[in-house]
Computed example of a mutant assay.
Amino acid sequence: MHTIALFGGQDPQGLTAQLTKSLLAACEGTTEFIDLNSLTIRPDRQNAANPQLDALEAKLAAADVWVLASPTYFGTVAGTLKQALDCLRPRLTRMTHKGDTLPDKYKGKVYITVSSCFATGLDNTFTHQTDACLTMLDKAMAAAGLRKAGELILPGTWGMHALPPAKLDQAKQLAAKLPAKVRKDDETLKRYLLLFCMIAVMALATMGIQLLIPAVTTNFWTRYVSFVVIFFVLLAGLLHYATFVRHKHR
């Protein structure tokens, strides 16, 4: 297994880079850390050679796992990493005649995101400092058809001089799971079972709430309407959590 990390922060010796390197050190097989600041990344131009972008893409093509690492700057991705992804976009995706973006030749590869922020873990939980950064990276990788294997977030970096042992352990645990992710195990059955369990639990919770409000179960239609409304509220809350609050802020 070969894992490659693209680092887009300003300090290749900083905490975000250290956490990324710790992840790489725990990975099986070969690894490579690329400081994008050392490259001159520019978009493709018609009839013009682009050797640095060619070399970067070749390394991505040869890797089984991509690690995208960027501190959260002004609530989003560092410009160096964003520039690289913007320039790689025509090579990672394909466009339909209607302008739709679809996955291309790298569909099915695995990726990890790494970020950090000055906010404490508790603050980040409620203010979502790192969300926009991670969401942007996830959006780019989803467009290319990659599968996410996990993420590492380092909050509270203001005044921090060394990586917390808990984060180093988290990096090791994530690295240990990568070989199974790379094997592309079919998780279709797992997803259907998870969906079934989720619906079963939500239906049970809905019926339990109905029992607490006897007035909504006096006849068939009030029971039906109340069930639909309660179930919808629970589902909306779950989808909100899965969509916006899924990142591990601490």
Rank of each mutant, 00 (worst) to 15 (best):
M202Q: 11
M202S: 03
M202L: 14
M202C: 02
A203Q: 07
L204N: 08
L204Y: 05
L204I: 11
A205C: 13
A205W: 00
A205G: 05
A205P: 11
A205I: 15
T206R: 01
T206A: 03
M207C: 04
M207K: 04
M207Q: 09
M207P: 01
M207W: 09
M207E: 06
G208T: 14
G208F: 06
G208R: 02
I209V: 15
I209C: 04
Q210M: 15
Q210T: 08
Q210F: 10
Q210S: 09
L211D: 06
L211R: 09
L211Y: 12
L211Q: 07
L212H: 06
L212E: 02
L212A: 15
I213R: 06
I213G: 05
I213T: 13
P214Q: 06
P214F: 09
P214M: 08
P214A: 06
A215M: 12
A215Q: 15
A215I: 15
A215E: 15
V216W: 15
V216M: 14
V216I: 15
T217E: 05
T218K: 14
T218C: 01
T218R: 09
T218I: 15
T218L: 10
N219C: 05
N219S: 11
N219I: 02
N219V: 05
N219H: 09
F220P: 04
W221V: 07
W221N: 06
W221D: 12
T222Y: 11
T222G: 00
R223M: 08
R223G: 08
R223C: 04
Y224G: 00
Y224H: 04
Y224E: 05
Y224I: 01
V225N: 13
V225Q: 10
S226H: 04
S226P: 03
S226I: 01
S226V: 01
S226E: 10
S226L: 07
F227R: 00
V229F: 05
V229T: 08
V229R: 05
V229G: 09
I230D: 06
I230H: 01
I230L: 14
F231T: 12
F231A: 15
F231E: 13
F231D: 15
F232T: 15
F232H: 05
V233K: 07
V233Q: 05
V233C: 13
L234E: 08
L234Y: 05
L234S: 08
L235W: 09
L235G: 02
